[in-house]
Amino acid sequence: MHEMAICESILQTLQQEAAAQGFSVVRKVRLEIGPFSGVEVDALKFGFDVVTKGSLATDAALEIIETKGTAWCLPCAASITIKNRYDPCPTCNSHQLQITGGEELRIKELEVD
C-alpha cells in the first residue's frame, strides 16, 4: 500500500513547512489528486489519519479535490476529457492520445495556526 508512504511524505512536507513558515498546527490539508495518479483515495484518507496521529496535523481535516483526466488527440487535434487512461477520443475514436492532465498528486492548500 504505497498510500502510507505518500502520507508519510505529506507529513514530512508539513513538518518542513511548519519549520520554515513558523506554524505549529495544521487544521486542513487540501490535496489535488488526478484519476491517473495511481492513488486509491480511500486508502490515502485512512493512511493520513494513521500517519498524522500525534503530529502537528493530528486533528487536520483532509480534503480531496479530484481533478479530471484530460488529453490531446493526435489525429483530430481535439483537447478532450477522459475517465480512463486508455479511453478512445470521443470525437474520432482514436487511441493516439497524449495525456495532458489527471496525473496530479499535490498539496494544493493548507489551513494552519
Rank of each mutant, 00 (worst) to 15 (best):
N93D: 09
L97F: 03
E32H: 13
A60Y: 02
E17M: 15
S94V: 03
I80D: 09
T13W: 12
I99L: 01
A19N: 08
N93K: 04
V39E: 07
K53Q: 14
R106F: 05
R106K: 12
D42Y: 05
I107Q: 10
V26G: 10
L105E: 07
P35G: 12
P88H: 11
T70D: 08
T58G: 08
D42L: 12
N93F: 00
I99M: 01
P35S: 11
L31G: 00
V51I: 14
V51G: 09
N84T: 13
K28S: 13
P75G: 13
M4V: 11
M1S: 06
Q16D: 13
R85V: 11
E3D: 14
R30C: 03
K83V: 12
P88L: 03
A77P: 01
G54R: 06
E3M: 02
Q21W: 05
T52D: 04
H95G: 10
C7E: 04
C92L: 08
Q12E: 13
A5C: 05
L110S: 00
I82L: 06
W72R: 15
E103T: 07
A5Y: 07
C7L: 03
F46W: 13
R106C: 12
V50R: 11
K83S: 14
E103W: 00
P88G: 07
V51P: 10
G22P: 09
M4W: 00
I33A: 03
A18D: 01
D42T: 05
V50C: 12
E8F: 00
V39C: 09
E104S: 06
T91H: 14
I65Q: 09
V39Q: 01
A57T: 11
I80M: 07
T52L: 06
A43H: 02
A61S: 11
A20Q: 07
E111R: 04
A78S: 07
A77S: 12
P88S: 09
F48S: 01
E63Q: 02
L62N: 01
N93Q: 14
E8R: 01
Y86W: 12
C73H: 03
H95P: 07
G69Q: 01
V26N: 12
E32R: 10
Y86H: 09
C89Q: 02
D87K: 01
G34E: 08
S24P: 14
S94A: 15
K45I: 14
S79M: 12
E103S: 05
G22D: 06
L44M: 10
